[in-house]
């Protein structure tokens, strides 16, 4: 640890939260690439680690707007796994629903070990929910969708993290996946400039192209996040070299906290050093995606949409 100048972070909320205090204790500049909870930053006065990825509450917020403005749903059932990331997603749903005056028909979490979602989905239907949102990881997205289909539940919108964005989802569920909405942080098709390094730019499309050449398949968001975080750190190190002719931890860190701009992954910008929530991501955006004819289409926000949203599930 003592000879390290900067760190890439582990995958996931729990791991990042676990290493956060070590990083802060030792003072190593880090851009946490895939962590969606706020816990490591919220009120923590972080001084060394910034959040590169976006935050959990943003994941499905857009779907609430979509449900209100396009699907004309009167209420929402929030159903989510009781672990850090889905809790954050549900916080976002709840906050946006309240803000927009959408009635909350059900708000319930379930244990990580749950394997049968049908009682909970039946409960949501009994309570008359028209928009069902939440989830957790892959099994939940599939399980909730199946459970809803099994009881003939008709919804105006069904939006689930994170499994619904997984390409496996449509393979496993086929026709049932049609019309299910999800959330994506990044897609190969999105146009981002990336960093402008000494005149040469590595934009998202360049990254996707070289990834495909190397691995013969489309990159997933975690690869993009890792690459983007790498771009950011490289830039931070360059900046430090330029100013002090060496890799200085303090300068690298300052760059991570002050920089506001774009990587191939999208926008980056965090709460400035010295504030209670320092390091927390504030600029990264999320899209609502929807499976339409076996393809993943961006349907929200409107200005980035690749297709019109479908209303009503199942199709």
């Amino acid at each position: 640890m003592d000879r390290v100048d900067f760190l890439f972070s582990p995958y996931g909320s729990e791991l990042t939260a676990a290493v956060a205090s070590v990083i802060e204790e030792l003072g190593v500049p880090t851009a946490a690439s895939i962590v969606a909870t706020l816990a490591p930053w919220k009120g923590k006065n972080a001084k060394w680690m910034t959040q590169f990825s976006s935050t959990a509450p943003l994941y499905l917020m857009g779907s609430v707007d979509l449900a209100i403005e396009r699907a004309e749903a009167k209420n929402i059932a929030i159903l989510y796994e009781d672990t850090p990331f889905p809790i954050g997603v549900a916080d976002g749903l709840r906050a946006r629903a309240k803000e927009r005056g959408l009635k909350i028909a059900m708000d319930e979490k379930y244990d990580k070990a749950l394997t049968d979602w049908s009682p909970l989905v039946s409960k949501a239907r009994s309570l008359g929910a028209e928009f069902l949102a939440g989830g957790g990881y892959y099994p939940a997205a599939v399980g909730i969708t199946r459970a809803a289909a099994g009881i003939g539940y008709r919804l105006k919108l069904l939006a689930l993290v994170v499994g619904a964005a997984d390409p496996k989802f449509v393979k496993d569920l086929g026709i049932l996946a049609e019309g299910v909405a999800g959330s994506d942080i990044w897609l190969p098709s999105v146009k981002t400039r990336g960093f402008v390094v000494e005149g040469a730019t590595i934009a998202n499309e360049d990254f996707v192209r070289s990834y495909k050449e190397e691995f013969k398949r489309d990159p997933e968001y975690w690869s993009a996040a890792g690459y983007g975080a790498g771009q950011l750190l490289a830039q931070a190190v360059n900046d430090s070299l330029k100013r002090a002719r060496k890799v200085d931890r303090n300068l690298t860190r300052d760059f991570l906290f002050n920089f506001s701009g774009e990587t191939i992954y999208g926008d980056y910008g965090v709460v400035k050093l010295g504030q209670p929530d320092a390091g927390m991501q504030v600029r990264k955006q999320h899209f609502v995606i929807q499976w339409q004819k076996g393809k993943k289409e961006v349907v929200w926000p409107r200005e980035l949409a690749s297709a019109e949203p479908w209303i009503g599930w199942p199709r």
Partner: peptide
Amino acid sequence: VLFSMDLMAPLTGGGAGIGFI
């Protein structure tokens, strides 16, 4: 399960967990 329930959340942080230095 008990430690992740809302009942205990003010102390245990519920399913989101509790971090400290």
